[in-house]
């Protein structure tokens, strides 16, 4: 059974968000996009290596949710597809770009790379490389926030491909059993690498069908629509703060790029990708801003230019930064 999609009235949500805040949300999404495009360019120029999992197409999901939390009070954690979550946590893009370049000025001093961004200050508990590995970690953050009575909630982001892992089921059970303020957001971009979601999951609706087994509430929203993401997040975050009951959420989204940069993409058709590109979450918010008369095309272009310049500057900073000294090799193995 397909899930019931969380319904929103786009005009009402637009007006509730308001002009300044909506421009800011659009700017954040665009920042994520331009950061990653720049990273992709650097990868092709062999400045960045290893894996590079891009979030392009999925920006509305994390952007909507981070707008209702306070990074540092609330905790977040995600998979290796972590650039957006780090940016939204408030980490400086220069530091992130330098990490991609493997430089001493990087977010993890050049030790982590693309999959492992972190921020202790913002309680961004990282990008994690093992599928499903972050889910108990996010659950542990919820446990701690509750224990310490901080009022914080934890947001655990995961892919559709991670829901079959044992860690997912073990986490949901504990979170429900102990009423932890934990929100699990499945970013269902419809593929785990080359495996379509339905080839890896026995049910259609990942949140709705699975939450019942753990006595949890579930929500499903259109992850390509910022308004749906934002409104659903507003309701769920408020509810979890109030009730300290965990919630399972599924965002129906799509990634426009390959799984990582090297992916021939033979498991999906060009038409399918094109169809989803017409639903580009960033372009749609820009359209909404224009329709409301809140942002002209010229103003939008000016902001875009400014963001691109910031990314060029970040790349330049990364380029000019020194490599980590060899003395760093065994530093930080132990605290």
């Amino acid at each position: 059974m397909p899930a019931q999609l969380y319904e929103v009235d786009p005009i009402a949500v637009r007006d509730e968000i308001g002009k300044e805040r909506l421009i800011e949300l659009w700017r954040r999404m665009l920042t994520i996009r331009r950061f990653e495009e720049r990273a992709e360019l650097a990868y092709r120029a062999k400045k960045v290596a290893g894996f590079l999992h891009l979030y392009i197409g999925q920006e509305a999901v994390a952007t909507g949710w981070y707008d209702h939390i306070t990074p540092g009070v609330d905790a977040t954690v995600t998979s290796y597809r972590c650039h957006a979550h780090a940016i939204l946590s408030g980490v400086d893009v220069k530091e992130l770009m330098a990490e991609l370049y493997g430089k001493a000025t990087g977010n993890a001093k050049g030790k982590g790379g693309s999959m492992h961004f972190f921020s202790r200050e913002k309680l961004f508990l990282g990008g994690h490389g093992i599928v499903g590995g972050q889910i108990p970690v996010g659950t542990g953050a919820a446990f701690s926030l509750k224990y310490r009575k901080t009022g914080g909630v934890s947001l655990t982001f995961l892919g559709d491909g991670a829901t079959p892992q044992g860690t997912f089921h073990e986490s949901l059970n504990m979170a429900s059993l102990w009423s932890l303020p934990a929100i699990y957001i499945i970013e269902n971009n419809q593929y785990g690498m080359g495996t379509a979601c339905h080839r890896a999951n026995a049910v259609d609706s990942l949140a709705e069908a699975k939450a019942v087994g753990y006595n949890m509430k579930a929500y499903t929203f259109d992850g390509l629509d910022l308004f749906a993401s934002w409104k659903c997040a507003q309701e769920v975050v408020a509810e979890v703060r109030r009730s300290s009951r965990p919630v399972l959420v599924e965002a129906k989204t799509y990634r426009y790029r390959g799984h990582s940069v090297s992916d021939a993409g033979l498991y999906r058709t060009k038409e399918e990708v094109e169809r989803y590109k017409r639903l580009d979450p960033i372009a749609r918010v820009q359209q909404a801003l224009q329709d409301a008369g809140w942002l002209s095309e010229a103003e939008a272009n000016a902001i875009d230019e400014e963001i691109r310049a910031r990314m060029a500057e970040a790349a330049d900073f990364a380029e000019r930064s020194p490599e980590p000294p060899l003395s760093q090799l065994t530093a930080d193995v132990y605290a």
């Binding site: 990490e99 493997g102 990087g106 993890a108 693309s114 060899l326 760093q328």
Partner: peptide, 16 residues
Amino acid sequence: TTENPMPYAANLEHET
């Protein structure tokens, strides 16, 4: 392999 998790930076990886 030196006694550290694998670092990402090219020069550190090389030494590891």
